[in-house]
Design a binder for these strands. Structure first.
Lengths: 195, 195
DNA sequence: CGGCGCATGTAACTTGTTACATGATTCC
DNA sequence: GGAATCATGTAACAAGTTACATGCGCCG
């Protein structure tokens, strides 16, 4: 009976730093949290309204909204801060991960070796791009030391990504090596069969 | 417009090896796939019936069902095999992982250092248990070489878990070291304030 | 004047979890 | 007799995605 509500706590966490619009929340998640989090507008906006009604955040007319259509800033209330702190004390829920690449690899003897190799290469490239972003972000953080009060935490979160993504890359290399070897062996078998 | 249907492909994949009951499918996922996959009965049973109606699998009275209540074996059809092969050819969908531990760490300056350290230790222990299982499973595989025809694939999937879980462990160690350091510094600050 | 960025929001849908109901057999 | 294991299934709910509707201002 652990009440998940992850979107809610993400919002509370971000608003504990500064008031934001729904749009800004989405942007922050996409730019800075992308490798370990995701949210869609379909979750954010209804949750913001719900939270406003419940009094954990306050909806305010956005004074900066000169351009574009009307917009709203959300501000955390003391009730909201309380709820955030309670959540921080709760045990972490086990993450559920479903790696489609592993499922495909597991059953890849039903398909072609070339296909699964291409898919692993694609996986490797996608994650390599992210690794590059990690480096840029880390440099930026190190150069602008002290800019965030949660600087140390941000660096630790980044370090997680760097280590795990490096493990992904290593695995891709080794798996591709093994598959290449098998491919060559299989080719040999065919040659034998032909003779 | 990529049609996910991951449960469906998991079922097709498993049934491509041998006919199984819904209960057996769940057990295999829990025992052998647990670190990279999960399914619940609420997904498995309705999907099995749907797939049977669509003709990609066949529902059969289980001849082994001497004990317990009546049970059914499901067998893949040629249409099902075709669908499995089509899926194997499709590009892999990007996995979305939400690491609650990272979200909590990110906002942990709102809570206590001790709490987040405990949570990281818990994360570390949980994953260490899994690492132990990886080792046992690998030994078993190496001793019973050739028992599965997809032996090589299973080993590669296992290797993924080993590498990624090792990265988790390394990260936990380093993060705990950094947090410990910060804790000692903060304690120093308090001491100064007190004077 | 058309596209892009800012900005909010909903409806329909898919996906996944949880709790519950049912029921037979085996083992203590 | 009661717990554990085998075994199937559903209903209610929670979570999450996608596509769409709306609309202003700016820039070229």
């Amino acid at each position: 009976m652990s009440s998940s509500k992850k979107t809610r706590y993400l919002i509370l966490g971000l608003l504990s730093e500064s008031p934001l619009t729904g749009y800004e929340i989405k942007k922050i998640v996409d730019l800075r949290f992308a490798y370990f989090w995701s949210e869609s507008y379909g979750q954010i906006y209804p949750e913001l309204n719900k939270m406003n009604e419940e009094g954990v955040i306050h909806k305010l007319e956005n004074p900066e909204s000169t351009k574009g259509r009307n917009s709203y800033k959300y501000e955390i209330t003391s009730e909201g801060l309380e709820e955030l702190k309670e959540w921080l004390e709760c045990p972490v829920e086990k993450e559920v991960i479903r790696y489609e690449i592993l499922l495909k690899l597991y059953f890849s003897n039903m398909g072609s070796t070339d296909t699964i190799m291409e898919q692993i290469k694609e996986f490797q490239m996608t994650h390599k791009k992210q690794q590059h972003l990690f480096e840029l972000f880390q440099k930026d953080l190190e150069e602008n030391f002290d800019e965030h009060d949660n600087h140390a935490e941000v660096l630790m979160v980044l370090m997680f990504g760097q280590k795990v993504w490096a493990a992904y890359d290593e695995w891709c290399q080794e798996a591709l090596k093994l598959l290449q070897k098998r491919k060559e062996l299989t080719k040999g078998d065919f040659d034998e069969e032909r003779n």
